[in-house]
Design a protein around this nucleic acid. Structure first.
Lengths: 245, 245
DNA sequence: CGCAAATTTGAACGTAGTCAACAAGTGTGG
DNA sequence: CCACACTTGTTGACTACGTTCAAATTTGCG
């Protein structure tokens, strides 16, 4: 039996019945390895499979008419990718691997079958969506109302938190962002040049340290404060879910 | 029997069974009228009821440490309000009426009961969430990557589209935004002063006209183009939903 | 009518963008 | 193994978009 990376991630909040776990595992029967830059879904292409990200990181972004890019989300192992395919005949966003990794593609119908056979899973997804949405609105507030420095700080804090869960942070607290400064800029609504300046500034302020590609947050609380950072997945409460079947 | 404003809105995309419609109507048994400025939920307050917005408009926003405000969403009749209450013990956002209106408050447990008794509704909500999410990411891209002029144009286009559905646009195409310029600024990440300048510029360019509080879009296609506007609720496809029961 | 809130405009300022040049990596093929 | 091309990172000088501050005007409302 294939273990479910997706279920593993969710079990931080819910416990699944044997039947549910098996059903979820079925989504990850097929595997496909990808390398940095592999495009899983391209904006405006007809919707196809969905994916569970098993290993590595990925991102989704949109391109604007003038060619500029807005990165919407960074994705980590256990995340569900390409859900817009459920309702849009053409994908509203591009999905790209940020590093070498493994994804499990599965058919849309497999997903809808899952929802009808295990209604509780629909409720779980609905709940997770709330958290996802809160994270998005946090970013909205960051782009609309905070300084470049705060946005870069926020990205680093968030990145470290996610990489911690994926065991990608060394004992000394250092990690490899795995993003170019241009990508950081496209996520935070800045230019690569200005991202560079903000990183330098944070370094000069002894809030972060950088050496050969690794970053260390020297004062995470302070960084989190300047970024208005709130962990939207920490206070999640799913007690109201119907009992497992 | 109480008609369901929520169901009515959804029936643009799905048809409900009699049983489903009745279940939805039960959410709107209680009514409460509100006037401009009424706070339905305050950020960080313990989560309470959810609401269906029956008449009028509302908005949700967050406040940052420095006192600045980011408006997350404008809400219109038929919208479901306060869903974060489902998973967060404290509300991540404030919910305020933007004008006189009527809301139907209902208990969280009523909602969870609905989901278990009518699994298909959970799927519908999941689908709608995708559209909601796409709309949010559009705004993210707007804040991160477009000019002040484009953002204000986009807000006007979106506003008109929503007010059309709510029968709030006159035959001549004019409508009352129902927002102060400060609110427009807090939604678009600008200052009230700059919003004013952008409105004046759009007026000078003959893209909009303003007279005693009413706005008319003289060249909507052009406005929509500069704003990268995409109607995320137009291309929605919900054919994959399980059959009604 | 009189007050408070909202709008409007101008002038000065500052944050972030643009343009440009160079340095430091990174990978490829000769 | 090194030369070369290419991407990424770094820094400086200049520009510009949007903010800030301030004051005047209009609008809505009790």
């Amino acid at each position: 039996m294939v273990a479910s990376c997706f279920a593993d991630g969710l079990e931080r909040w819910v416990t699944f019945s044997q039947a549910e776990r098996q059903a979820l595992a079925r989504l990850e029967e097929r595997q496909r390895s990808v390398k940095r830059g592999t495009v899983l879904v391209r904006e405006n292409d007809p919707s196809g499979d969905l994916f569970v990200l098993r290993e590595g990181t990925a991102m989704s972004y949109v391109l604007l008419d003038d060619g500029s890019r807005q990165i919407l989300r960074f994705l980590f192992p256990g995340d569900l990718l390409g859900t817009p395919a459920l309702v849009y005949p053409r994908s509203p966003e591009t999905l790209v691997a940020l590093g070498d990794g493994v994804v499990c593609p599965f058919d849309r119908t497999a997903f809808t079958a899952l929802l009808t056979e295990h209604p509780r899973l629909a409720a779980v997804l609905l709940a997770l969506h709330q958290a996802d949405r809160a994270a998005l609105t946090d970013r909205l507030a960051a782009l609309g109302r905070t300084s470049a420095r705060a946005r870069v700080a926020g990205l680093l804090v968030e990145l470290r938190r996610r990489l911690l869960l994926a065991q990608q942070v060394r004992a000394d607290g250092s990690f490899i962002p795995g993003l170019t400064q241009e990508e950081i800029g496209d996520a935070t609504g800045l230019t690569a040049v200005h991202v560079n300046r903000m990183l330098r500034q944070l370094e000069d302020e002894r809030l972060i340290a950088r050496e050969n590609g690794r970053v260390r947050l020297l004062d995470e609380p302070s960084l989190a404060r300047t970024a208005n950072y709130v962990d939207r997945f920490g206070t999640l409460n799913l007690d109201w879910l119907p009992p497992a079947r």
